[in-house]
Design a protein around this nucleic acid. Structure first.
Lengths: 343, 343
DNA sequence: GTCTAGGCCGAAAGCCTTTTCGGTATCGTA
DNA sequence: TACGATACCGAAAAGGCTTTCGGCCTAGAC
């Protein structure tokens, strides 16, 4: 049984405005929309009436005409996570600057829920979709949809789709170059879950730079584990045991770096004097509260979200943007790295 | 100049389905919506056609009829903050269980931007609004709007509005009772910015319990400062200097508690053996990584968001829910508190 | 065989706005 | 005075869907 909504009186419609202003609906419409075929005095009357009735045009009726809803769908998989949110913010921001609104859905990594939300969004005639992944590994394509789709953070496996991701290889290069600039020559690589492509990419970028410059990677193989402080503590113990002369540790995440810092401090090593440490993700609450504060790589997720929205708008306007796009991360140097101080 | 959208062929319409099935539009509609006046065989034909054409009904047209959009607006003021997000999640979750979608806007604490987004949402004929504040202090009402509004986290100053908030006084009571249960009798209260009502409420709740039980509050006046680790470190120093026999410190936030823990550890005090410490907010990344892990108060923000949505749906259905509603927080005991061990 | 009831189906109105196009009034000019 | 031009305004259609209501047909009853 459908319940009656509480609205005492319906929202004012254009017809009401027209009647109050003593003009036709058509004229009222033209007046409010700034069309030129209305006498100034008439226009004023219409505006006055609209004001008095608190008229606001029914977007649903407008969109029925234009065929566009002025709405985009944003499907996230990680609403509680710290990666989706900045991306979401960037997209919302970019959309708000135009006149489009964002319909938000959280599918929580569940493909079924994703399909369900997709149906709802398509029924609402969104003009386009942004799909934000929970982790940067590629995900299966949604296939051909009646509206353009941009995959953000997690790219689509199908190269014909439009995707935008952070450049983890470049992130790896950034910290490695920074380490070298700080005069470090024996560097350990400690990273997280080897199931994550990001772990490998960041290592690959760092390795490329270190090898090119002839710096020593100790141990020669990077240490994979989990994305946790715990693993950071453990791994740091392994490294300083086997290679007491290590002078830099590049970590795959800020969490790992926090653990590494703990072990180094407890083993009496000074950071950055003895060993420089870098994190990844620039998770401020961790990086800034670390002792010393942690040099990290910022993936510029908000920028990523913004660009995702821009790509989507371009696609909606018919300017095609297929393929992979990349946001270059930036280094945020803090106290955990610095020129080597002998002693 | 309006650009042409890329859509090669328009979405299938009900008319297309009807034509393919060899029935009228009316019959097609009735068939798809499960109305009873359609022969089973006809219905099957219609469904088949709809399937083939990937028909999905145009929600904008449907809503034009019903006058309801199946959409609620969610205006947040703190999209990057950790308080809005869980609330948002809860609301999205509650909405998704029905068949309503969430339009998300971030006003960033700017009243002007709020009005702008409000207009956009009302134009889109949202069925209702949830306004999520950035901090728990009361905010000015939006006044009478054509749709129901629920204020979440930050209540409206107008008691005729519907608001839902966390019970900070109860949160204060919770930790105080826990301290007493752990046998603590000389307890310090360290909290944040006195501009925040939450700071006072939490203190008031704790004080009420401590006074009732005759426990000693040292110093007799709570220490107000900022919501930072820095202040936590400073305040803890003050407390143990003036009252070396303190055996419990109730902190107004997890950040403050982290700072307090640092100072206690560095001064040689054992937690919880010598001094028990509690935080507030249950910000897991802080509470769980603290040493020892931090007992805290969880505000159940996700539940708050869920209930906000429920209240809104009730109001939309005409069941009025004016006034203030409250979500009771819960204690999350961890290692930083425990029975006093003489030592 | 005729009449009626009931089961199916379709025409059309309505939701709210925009836009086109035709109509009216006004004005200047010949 | 009359004509064309110009400036305003309004009727109506369109957009996709739901719902009402009347019409048709079939089957069963007399």
């Amino acid at each position: 049984m459908p319940r009656k909504p509480e609205q005492k009186r319906k929202q004012a419609t254009l017809a009401d405005v027209a009647q109050m202003a003593g003009v036709s609906i058509a004229t009222a419409s033209k007046a409010l929309n700034g069309r030129s075929q209305v006498k100034a005095e008439t226009r004023a009357r219409v505006f006055e009436a609209a004001e008095k009735l608190k008229f606001s045009p029914n977007a649903m009726a407008q969109n029925l005409l234009t065929g566009r809803s002025g709405t985009i769908g944003l499907v996230t998989h990680d609403l509680d996570g710290r990666f989706s949110i900045p991306t979401l913010m960037g997209a919302e921001d970019a959309a708000g600057h135009g006149r489009t609104s964002v319909l938000l859905c959280d599918a929580r990594g569940d493909a079924l829920r994703e399909r369900y939300h997709l149906q709802a969004l398509l029924g609402r005639r969104v003009d386009g979709l942004i799909v934000v992944g929970a982790r940067p590994d590629p995900r299966s394509s949604l296939g051909t949809l009646p509206v353009p789709v941009v995959y953000a953070y997690a790219p689509s496996t199908d190269p014909r789709d439009t995707s935008i991701v952070t450049d983890n290889v470049a992130g790896g290069r950034l910290v490695a170059e920074h380490m070298l600039a700080c005069g470090r020559r024996r560097i350990a690589l400690v990273t997280g879950d080897p199931e994550y492509g990001a772990a490998h990419d960041r290592v690959a970028g760092a390795r490329e730079v270190l090898d090119r410059d002839g710096a020593e990677v100790v141990p020669s193989e990077p240490l994979y584990g989990t994305w946790s402080e715990e693993w950071g503590r453990t791994a740091a113990g392994l490294v300083i045991n086997q290679h007491p002369d290590v002078d830099g540790i590049i970590c795959g995440s800020d969490q790992i770096a926090r653990g590494v810092l703990d072990t180094l401090r407890e083993s009496g090593r000074k950071v950055p004097d003895d060993v420089a440490v870098t994190g990844h993700d620039n998770w401020e609450i961790l990086a800034v509260n670390a002792r010393p504060q942690l040099t990290s790589v910022d993936m510029r997720l908000e920028e990523l979200g913004r660009q995702a929205a821009e790509l989507l708008f371009a696609a909606i306007d018919g300017r095609t943007t297929k393929g992979g796009h990349v946001v270059t991360p930036r280094l945020v140097p803090r106290a955990s790295t610095g020129p080597r101080v002998s002693g």
